[in-house]
Design a binder for these strands. Structure first.
Lengths: 134, 134
DNA sequence: CTGGATCCAAACTGATACTG
DNA sequence: CAGTATCAGTTTGGATCCAG
């Protein structure tokens, strides 16, 4: 009935929505694991309107630590979601902005934002009911 | 230029794509923080084709520990993404399936899956280049 | 201003053993 | 079968100090 694990050309695969995925190199898992962090998507959303500087980002996301800000920016830059531009001023200023890949991903995030707003109450209610039952 | 932090009716807000978000109760952050885990979205995708039992899920996702499987199912159930049905057989069997909310979220996940497949190579390439530059 | 380095606490994960 | 309990290892995150 639900034959989700099978073999295709000798490789172990995993069916996601009917699409076979190579278990050992699953694009979805790879992308997810790197974007699913607490700050990653929020960072991309924050940069939606244009490039921002390090200090601006720290101000706009008050509850991120400097360490996490640096790390998140590095991770996203490494995966190609955003670019880092250094301006040789004194003192130096650095701007972070979305790349084409980043903007492409941002497009995916927007429906998610709308969905979250639309369903937040339902989720909060579900949570409250679950906790009450316990 | 980028006036992302402002005040609306005395509340600190955060602009996401032009939409003001209450910082202290941001739906996007709340939903994200609970769905962004390593296994959550994968679990929803795995249940896309219909309800599955505990042992079936463990078999379909071989690299999840029993502990994480239990915990992931609990979390998703608590937030209303999936339902848990116990059948009074001997030995007992339990089925997990998507709720309407879960299916609604699944619809959001599908474009993400397609995007991951389409852009996986670009990301791998960006990573390789970044690492090479270092 | 933009981080890098270090130390420490907390959270997350996995392996194992055990129960109704 | 479907979990719970426990413990150890790993990772994550925050605070602080420092440097180009």
């Amino acid at each position: 009935m639900n034959k989700a694990t099978d073999k295709v050309k000798g490789k172990k695969v995993f069916l996601i929505g009917g699409v076979p995925m190579d278990m050992d190199n699953c694009p979805v898992r790879d992308v997810m694991d790197h974007i699913a962090g607490k700050w990653n998507s929020l960072m991309i959303l924050t940069l939606a309107d244009g490039p921002l500087r390090f200090s601006e980002l720290r101000r706009l996301i008050p509850d991120i630590s400097q360490r996490m800000l640096t790390q998140t920016l590095r991770d996203l830059q490494r995966d190609g979601y955003l670019s880092r531009t250094v301006y040789p001023t004194q003192p130096p200023s650095v701007e972070y902005g979305l790349t084409d890949l980043g903007r492409s991903f941002l497009a995916l995030l927007r429906p998610f934002v709308d969905w979250s707003v639309a369903n937040h109450e339902a989720i909060r209610k579900a949570r409250a009911e679950y906790d009450a039952a316990a």
